[in-house]
């Protein structure tokens, strides 16, 4: 049982909690596991004893006593599990309410003597798409994709919705998962409270199509100052900031890509926003961030993520090079 602790890669394992949500869940998991291990041990010992002791021996044709039952025993093995389950049910219900972010509980937190920030926790809107994640910081007016920036040691509220089918937003080491449902009426809310800086892994946990297994995203937990600086630079980035060496790529981008992908102050929102793309860890959420992979992706998006919505533009090698160079230069403003 102890072997469970610290199992797996700390970027993604639920067994190495790096946030308050995941810690609370981990404690519950250990509690339930402990109770269950007791049950298992009792049953297995009893079972093993019976198998050895009461096996049929050669030549023994006697007929065992036909026992109907035993009231004391039966009451016992009904009552003890009830007690065990109550021990488990109480923290279950408490944690269920603790993790909830309805209006009421948000109010309660504010009244309850927390160091009340004036506006309450920051809100991030998460939208699941086939097969990428959009992250919007509405108060800061910043939209990004595939990389979620979070300030460390702060609670942020997350609003989850979907642009197409049902996805599920899961960062195992920071918190449990919650579904992103299509439609305004079904928006879900949860909170995240990371406690360590670093890069963590998020994933989609609800079957959403051909590339469900490729819908990863990164979570970058940074100090508050760094977070503020990131927000500031994202806001100040302009489409026209790109250095002149990559003007050719920028032109191709403007003609073909900008309709769907936003960069800085321009662009559409059908595909992932690419402001600051040069700083991303991954291409398309799954491949190492380098020029080679960018070219590979643009050249044949279906090969890397089957079923995604990005069209194939049939760029020639020179155009691909120029475009990749441009994308590699998409940094945020200083």
């Amino acid at each position: 049982m102890l072997g469970l602790i610290g199992c797996g890669n700390e970027q993604i394992s639920a067994l190495q909690p790096q946030g308050k949500g995941a810690s609370a869940l981990f404690d519950l998991m250990i509690l339930s596991l402990a109770i269950m291990v007791v049950v298992l041990v009792v049953v297995f010992i009893l079972f093993g004893y019976v198998l050895v002791k009461f096996r049929h021996r050669k030549g023994d044709d006697s007929i065992p006593e036909q026992v109907e039952g035993n009231h004391l025993l039966e009451v016992l093995w009904t009552a003890i599990p009830i007690v065990l389950l109550i021990v488990l049910a109480v923290p279950t219900v408490i944690t269920t309410f603790d993790l909830d972010v309805s209006e009421k509980s948000a109010q309660a937190t504010e009244e309850g003597g927390e160091p009340a920030e004036e506006e309450g926790p920051m809100t991030i809107k998460v939208t699941g798409h086939q097969y990428w994640w959009e992250f919007e910081y509405p108060d800061q007016e910043v939209v990004t994709a595939q990389e979620l920036y979070l300030p460390v040691d702060e609670r942020v509220n997350v609003e989850l919705s979907s642009a197409d089918v049902i996805h599920s937003f899961w960062i195992p080491s920071i918190s449990g998962k919650m579904d992103t449902n299509p439609g305004d009426k079904l928006t879900n809310k949860m909170w995240l409270h990371p406690e360590k800086t670093g890069t963590f892994q998020g994933a989609c946990a609800e079957l959403c199509g051909d590339s469900h297994a490729l819908m990863y995203f990164k979570v970058k937990v940074v100090e508050r100052e760094e977070f503020d600086a990131w927000i500031e630079s994202m806001k100040n980035t302009k489409f026209d900031d790109a250095p002149s060496e990559v003007a050719q790529g920028q032109q191709i981008f403007e003609q073909n890509c900008l309709q769907c992908h936003a960069v800085g102050d321009q662009g559409g929102n059908v595909g992932p926003a690419l402001t600051g793309f040069a700083d991303n860890d991954m291409v398309a959420g799954i491949a190492e961030h380098n020029k080679e992979n960018i070219k590979k992706w643009v050249n044949n998006p279906q090969e890397m993520k089957p079923g995604n919505n990005m069209p194939d533009f049939n760029f020639n090698e020179e155009q691909l090079d120029a475009l990749a160079d441009y994308l590699m230069e998409l940094e945020t403003a200083e």
Binding site: A14, G21, A22, A24, L25, L28, M29, S32, L33, M36, V39, L40, L85, L88, T92, T95, T96, D98, L99, S168, P172, S175, G176, K177, M178, A205, E206, L207
Partner: peptide, 17 residues
């Protein structure tokens, strides 16, 4: 027993799917 563990609703936020 894993069924009971899954019944712990908040812990299921980790187990689910």
């Amino acid at each position: 027993v894993t069924g009971v563990m899954l019944a712990v609703a908040p812990a299921d936020y980790q187990y689910h799917d």
